[in-house]
């Protein structure tokens, strides 16, 4: 199955702006230019792509003027969508968060080194047996059969 992603990128950008607003020195997520990455990533699995397309089409059809609404009205539209179609809204939110938290500028702001989990991983401290001092004093309490 191959499904083309066919969404109005202006709408996705406007949605991103409301989901993840500006903070400190960072603009809102739509203004950080994440829309095309969202569209690319959503295309990496047919099942997700279909849900993403459905979500966008439903949202756009219910909110044809979304990009020209005031911010508070945009929030109302998103809240309605979240309440009426939680799974579809959830797909938009999920991928928006994933793409936002991939960005090095975001990593820097939240104090996260942002590496992929492998190959470097993190440092493993040595095992310290002294932590068992108290619990070792407890008598066995397993039940005999």
């Amino acid at each position: 199955m191959t499904i083309n992603i066919n969404v109005d990128e202006n709408v996705m950008t406007a949605i991103l702006d409301r989901l993840i607003p500006a903070v400190d020195n960072l603009p809102s997520a739509g203004q950080m230019g994440f829309t095309s990455e969202i569209v690319r990533l959503a295309g990496q699995q047919d099942r997700f792509k279909a849900i993403f397309n459905n979500a966008m089409h439903l949202f756009e059809s219910h909110n044809p003027e979304f990009t020209s609404l005031a911010s508070a009205e945009q929030d109302d539209a998103l809240r309605r969508f979240e309440a009426e179609s939680p799974d579809l809204f959830g797909a938009l939110r999920t991928i928006s968060y994933i793409v936002y938290y991939k960005d090095p500028k975001v990593h820097e702001r939240i104090g996260w080194d942002g590496r992929t989990p492998q190959p470097d991983g993190n440092k493993m401290e040595p095992w310290d047996e002294s932590v068992l001092e108290n619990i070792r004093k407890r008598e066995p309490f397993w039940r005999k059969a």
Binding site: L41, Q44, F48, Y101, K102
Partner: peptide
């Protein structure tokens, strides 16, 4: 494995 991919968070929810 997906843990080496920059898209690992997406991969964990899909493929």
């Amino acid at each position: 494995y997906a843990s080496t991919s920059p898209d690992y968070e997406f991969e964990a929810l899909t493929n």
